Lab assay of single mutants.
Amino acid sequence: LSDEDFKAVFGMTRSAFANLPLWKQQNLKKEKGLF
């Protein structure tokens, strides 16, 4: 994903996403069907 796409899908920047706990990152990915 480009940075723009990433922001559109997750509603946050990559750095904000990277600061989330791993389980939360994985839950978000599953919610968005990216897993």
Rank of each mutant, 00 (worst) to 15 (best):
L1I: 13
S2N: 15
D3F: 00
E4F: 14
E4G: 03
E4P: 12
E4H: 03
E4L: 15
E4S: 15
E4N: 09
D5C: 07
D5I: 04
F6R: 01
K7E: 11
K7G: 05
K7V: 09
K7T: 09
K7L: 12
A8M: 10
A8L: 10
A8F: 10
A8P: 02
A8C: 03
V9T: 12
V9L: 12
V9G: 04
V9I: 09
V9D: 04
V9S: 06
F10C: 03
F10N: 03
F10K: 02
F10Y: 12
G11T: 04
G11I: 00
G11N: 06
M12K: 03
M12P: 01
M12R: 03
T13L: 02
T13K: 07
T13N: 08
T13I: 00
T13F: 01
R14P: 09
R14H: 15
R14D: 03
R14V: 04
R14Q: 08
S15P: 09
S15Q: 12
A16F: 05
A16Q: 13
A16L: 05
F17M: 05
F17W: 04
F17R: 01
F17V: 01
F17E: 02
F17C: 01
A18E: 15
A18M: 13
A18F: 09
A18T: 12
A18N: 13
N19R: 12
N19Y: 09
N19C: 14
L20T: 01
L20W: 00
L20D: 01
L20K: 04
L20R: 00
L20P: 00
P21L: 00
P21F: 00
P21N: 02
P21G: 03
L22R: 11
L22S: 13
L22W: 10
L22G: 13
W23Q: 15
W23N: 15
W23M: 09
K24Q: 14
K24T: 07
K24A: 10
Q25E: 01
Q25G: 01
Q25W: 00
Q25P: 00
Q25V: 03
Q26L: 06
Q26S: 08
Q26F: 13
Q26N: 14
Q26V: 13
N27T: 08
N27P: 00
N27Y: 12
N27V: 09
N27G: 10
N27H: 08
N27D: 14
N27R: 11
N27M: 13
N27E: 13
L28C: 06
K29W: 06
K29P: 08
K30W: 05
K30H: 08
E31W: 04
E31N: 09
E31H: 08
K32V: 07
K32R: 11
K32D: 03
G33L: 06
G33M: 08
L34Q: 13
L34S: 11
F35S: 15
F35Y: 11
F35G: 12
